[in-house]
Write a protein that binds this DNA or RNA. Structure first.
Lengths: 110, 110
DNA sequence: TAAATATATCGTAACATTACGATATGTCAA
DNA sequence: TTGACATATCGTAATGTTACGATATATTTA
């Protein structure tokens, strides 16, 4: 009937409710336009709170909160240098997931 | 670790705010444990509202609402057969995205 | 036609998320 | 030490999401 016509191969569905909840929580953290933008930038380099805020056109303290959220669920780590705080990607799966999302939503590819 | 080390390559970051909003909206739709479970099932076959509800241990009318949400953002389509309503996956990128999520969160792979 | 079944919709209460001004902390330079 | 800068935290109003009982629709069976 169904199944596996594509490249997708070895992963298993997690029946485990705890895994489902965890996955949902991480996806919720991902599911915000400014946070997506920040992750896209951080996958290509490291940036300060202020630089990310400017790119998203939001106040610095808002950027700071988004970054804290993403750090909490393990997406990012930070490194303070003087009064600047550099964030970078810590979760190795993020690149792959963002790649999926980018190929799906980039207007040029549609 | 596993396959697909090659895949991350050609996608571009979408500066476009509209694309970011769209992506965020779809991710929000994905970001619910019951909806994730339903998508996992539907990637492997087609099921009725009642079957999905039972698998998630929720009331039928709740399952119905989750399915409607996922249909709205293009993840699913439905096919009525008598009084049953079969849902199936319509968005081809879902398999790949779920694969990413499954490899990240399956307890057995941790 | 009436009852049973499967699904969908509505109204709403409970809860979560977001944005943002105000304020606090830590760092540097004069 | 003072002032400016970069970032973080708090309180809260506005908004969005979820769950769920009640009810509606559509289909099959008796």
């Amino acid at each position: 009937m169904n199944a596996k016509t594509t490249t997708v191969s070895k992963s298993k569905p997690f029946t485990d409710l705890q895994a489902l909840n965890q996955a949902a929580e991480c996806l919720r953290t991902l599911a915000h336009p400014h946070r997506l933008r920040m992750i896209q930038m951080l996958l290509r380099g490291r940036y300060t709170v202020g630089e990310l805020a400017e790119a998203c056109q939001i106040a610095n303290h808002m950027a700071s909160e988004h970054l804290r959220l993403m750090q909490r669920c393990g997406f990012l780590t930070n490194l303070k240098e003087g009064r600047k705080n550099y964030y970078q990607v810590a979760e190795p799966h993020l690149a792959q997931i963002m790649h999926c999302i980018e190929t799906r939503f980039d207007a040029n590819n549609q």
